[in-house]
Structure formats: C-alpha cells, structure tokens
Design a protein around this nucleic acid. Structure first.
Ligand code: NAD
Ligand code: NAD
Lengths: 218, 218
DNA sequence: CTTTTTTTGTGAAAGGTTTCACAACTGGCA
DNA sequence: TGCCAGTTGTGAAACCTTTCACAAAAAAAG
C-alpha cells in the first residue's frame, strides 16, 4: 500500500487470483508458481508477478507463492477479509435471484435487508429476510450498519432511489438498472450491464473477430 | 470496416452511444454533437469522435451527428439490427430472472428455448416458453437456428454443458457461472461475474480511492 | 559445500488507449 | 459573396498497461 494508483484491471485480476487460490487450497497445494496461477485464469505469469508486486513481495524465489497466505493477503487487499452488511432494493426478478446467490455470502457480502415499494411485496419473506417498505429506509440502513447497497429497481426509479440512498450516507452502490446514474464524487458506483455483454457477443459474431476474449478488460 | 483491430473498450462504448441515441431519439433530437453524446454517458467528446471514426465518417462538421442515422449505423456495427435466436440453459434463480429481462428482447435477443436437467422443471412454463430436457439439446438448437446460448447452471456442471453446446456448433456463449471455462478459439465466450463487481466496491471502500469509476473499463 | 535449477521481483521496452490540438469543412448570416 | 461560429475527423503526443528479460535469491541436486 505505497503510493500507487492501482488499475481497475489489476483489481479484477486479484479477484481471479483469489478464486484460483481458493481452488488450489481445496486441492491441498501449499505453494503455487506465477505460471500455474496464470494458467488457471488464462493470464500470463509476468502479469501475475507484476500485479502482486504492487502490493508487496509475497513469493519465494525458486519456490513460488504460499497458497494459504497469499489468499489471505489478497482477501485483505480486496477488503473481503470481513463481513459487509448489504441492503438490496427492488425484490423483483433479478433482486430475488441475487438474494439466493451463495457466492455473495461466501465472500462476506451479507444481504441483511430487503426493500421494495410494492405493498404486495412488503412483509413477504425471501430466504428468511422480510421485505421492508421504503419509508423505513434511512433508519434501517443506519441501525443495521449497512455499507453497501445493491439496486435492482426499474431504470425509471433508479436515480431517485440512488439520491435517497446517497443521502443516507451510503458510499458504495452496485446498480443493475441499465442507465447512467449520477452520484457525488465520494460515492463508488458500479453498474452491471448484461445487455452490453450480449452486444459484445453479437458484434464478435458479425465481425468474426480473429480471437475470442473472455472477461471484460480483465 | 477497414483493417483495424477494434478494442473492447470501443465496442462497449458503442453500446453506451446506442443507449444515449435511443434516449435522444425519444426526445426528438435530430442531431447531436460529440460533446452532448459524451456528456450523456460520462465520456469525452474526443473519445466519441475517435470511436466513431474507426467505422466511418458519420457526422457533419459544424452540425454534429444525425441521431436516427447514427443509431442505425451503430446497431449495424454491433449486429443488433436483426433478431438473434437465443437458448438459455439452467432455469434456476438467475435463469428465470433473465427470461423476463425485457432489455434483451428490445435489443433483438430473442430467448426462444429454455433447458434444464431437473425433471420437476422440464415441461413447466416461463413467460410462455416450455422448459425442455437436455437430451433434446442438439436437435432443438439446430431446428430453432439458435446462434447464442446463455448459461445459468451451477459452476460444477458448466464445463460439461459448454462442451456439449460447442459440439452443437454454437459460437457465442454468455456464462453466469463464476468459473473459467475452456472453449475452442473460434467460440466467443463472455463471463458475467457479479461477485467481482462487489469486490471492486469493497476494495474501493477500504482503500478509499480518490475517484469513483462506473462501468468496467469504459 | 558447490553447482544447477527454479522462480521471483522489477526496470525497461513494447504495445495500446486516450487526450490534445488543429486543419478542414459546414451552415448561417450579413 | 465572404466571414464567423460551430463541430468533425485525425495525426501526434501523452499516458497507461502489458510483456520482456534478466539479476537476485532460494531450493534442490550432486
Ligand atoms: N430481470 C433481469 O434478468 C435483469 C437483468 C439485468 C438487469 N436488470 C435490471 O434490473 C432492474 C430490475 O429488473 P427486474 O426484472 O427484477 O424487474 P422487476 O419489475 O421484476 O423488479 C423491480 C422491483 O423493484 C420494485 N420497485 C419499483 N419501484 C421501486 C421504488 N421506487 N422503490 C423500491 N422498489 C421499487 C418493484 O416493486 C419490483 O419488485 C431493472 O432496472 C432491469 O433493467 C434485470
Ligand atoms: N443467483 C444469482 O443471482 C446468480 C448471480 C450470478 C451468477 N449466478 C450463477 O449462475 C448459476 C446459476 O445460479 P442460480 O442461483 O440460478 O442456481 P439455481 O440452482 O437456482 O439454478 C441452476 C439451474 O440449473 C439447472 N441445472 C443443474 N445442472 C444442470 C445440467 N447439468 N444441465 C442443465 N441444467 C442444469 C438446475 O436444475 C437449476 O434449475 C450459478 O453458476 C451461479 O453461480 C447466480
């Protein structure tokens, strides 16, 4: 954690390394070389070493990286060595799918509260969590120490709700509505856009690109 | 469509332009400047002009770009000026959410077939589409001229199914399982990884990055 | 204990993307 | 008709990311 401005690509690759290390741990590897780690996620050894070098020296020359330790270090860097309290707003098609997504819980993202504006949904139960109404938003977010909000509402309501959420002091939002949302500079916002991925595939098909590419700009 | 190798970032930005142009059309604008287009999607005017210049000269100096025409041109480039027949495999939490996703249909991605291996799901109906069993896969994909497959099955079965799908001649796959899948070089594969986006937010929070960034590498 | 093998960590080079800056062109107006 | 304001299209520059290549270090072999 020196002076640097770490690139988004590097951070995304850390997520890949974390996933590969989880598998390696399960397979009882004690150490792993940059080459093996790279192979598992379709990257290059040099990239692995360069990425890790931004954060310190974790390996042993001639031997490689200690699997368990490196995994913990990366978890630390990514901030997933702890539990994050998450609220999800909009318990519709995609919202209710996300509530059941085990990967989130496994990485420490604990969906603790659900909100919806639909009277028929308020009070209903999803995976043991009761859906709350929007009027209670601010108090509930505070009382439950929510730090992260997932937005799964229609595009037409998204900006209004983001404003509200930001007003409650939330600094990180994952948005699923396919729309550009405005937030203050100190709020982190990421937007998942699945249609965009399909469009990329469609472009690839009609242009018959010479080489496929998985993952989105690492 | 000259000689070039268009970057992934440029393609993703074309999707953004398309979205902005759709809105501009609805608002009855006839022309739009690179500045206005850039503002709407939080990009720079120079980038808009550079991106478009890879594909031709669509604007008029002193005036800007014709909204309707540019939108059509971009649809053409992205390959969304036609209907793509899509099959979805794995009608679980996320799979059934995706069936209801209107944005896909709106952009010409027509989810025509649903598959699942679960006996209880086979024969059931989602948005008017009957879920089929996996043994019928090859014949159905061929008969229905499916060109694109969405995979929403557990990570543990994903590779086996991809192999099967590739064997049926499918050249484009959108995968939701958080796992690295192997496909031949002539098959386009994209993997949506939502946990990765949350991890990026978590990293941002603990490292208090100086500036937020929406969208994934443009 | 010495040599060989392996593999990291990292400057430097190469490659790629974004931004700059301005000539060239268009439309409108006098 | 000539001039002005506006805006594109695009080389060149600046910036950023990836790959290369190798010295340094450690482990393994002899
Ligand atoms: N369905 C998908 O697979 C999918 C995929 C990607 C993105 N998205 C996007 O996710 C969003 C939700 O999609 P969906 O298919 O789940 O729609 P949906 O209509 O099923 O769900 C939206 C939910 O938000 C609630 N809601 C509406 N206005 C609200 C408000 N002001 N405050 C609180 N809750 C409110 C509704 O009651 C509903 O439960 C949309 O923006 C959509 O474009 C959906
Ligand atoms: N739930 C989410 O919000 C979410 C989000 C992102 C990614 N994902 C990923 O998407 C995938 C599906 O997640 P889910 O929550 O919908 O799980 P799920 O268990 O609800 O659905 C999986 C479906 O796949 C079917 N299936 C299993 N094996 C199959 C096979 N061999 N052939 C055909 N169908 C088969 C199952 O019958 C089930 O209907 C997982 O890989 C998950 O990690 C889920």
């Amino acid at each position: 954690m020196r002076d640097r401005r770490i690139s988004e690509s590097t951070i995304h690759r850390l997520s890949h390394y974390y996933r590969a290390l989880t598998a390696l741990e399960r397979e009882h590897f004690d150490t792993v070389s940059s080459r093996e780690l790279a192979n598992r996620e379709e990257l290059t050894p040099a990239q692995v070493r360069k990425d890790l070098s931004f954060f310190g020296s974790f390996g042993t020359r001639g031997l490689g990286y200690p699997v368990k330790e490196l995994k913990e270090k990366i978890a630390r860097i990514l901030g997933i060595d702890r539990v994050w309290n998450v609220a999800l707003i909009g318990v519709g098609n995609i919202g209710s799918a996300l509530v059941s997504y085990k990967e989130f819980a496994r990485q420490g993202f604990n969906i603790k509260l659900l909100f919806d504006s639909d009277q028929r949904k308020i009070g209903s139960n999803h995976k043991g969590i009761t859906v709350l109404g929007m009027d209670d938003l601010e108090r509930q977010l505070n009382e439950n120490k929510i730090e992260l909000v997932i937005l799964a509402v229609p595009a037409s309501s998204a900006q209004v709700i983001v404003d509200h959420v930001v007003n409650c002091g939330i600094k990180a939002i994952l948005n699923f509505a396919p729309i550009k949302l405005a937030v203050p500079d100190d709020v982190f916002l990421r937007t998942e856009n699945m249609a965009m991925e399909l469009e990329y595939l469609s472009f690839s098909l009609v242009n018959n690109l010479p080489r496929r590419s998985d993952r989105k700009k690492t």
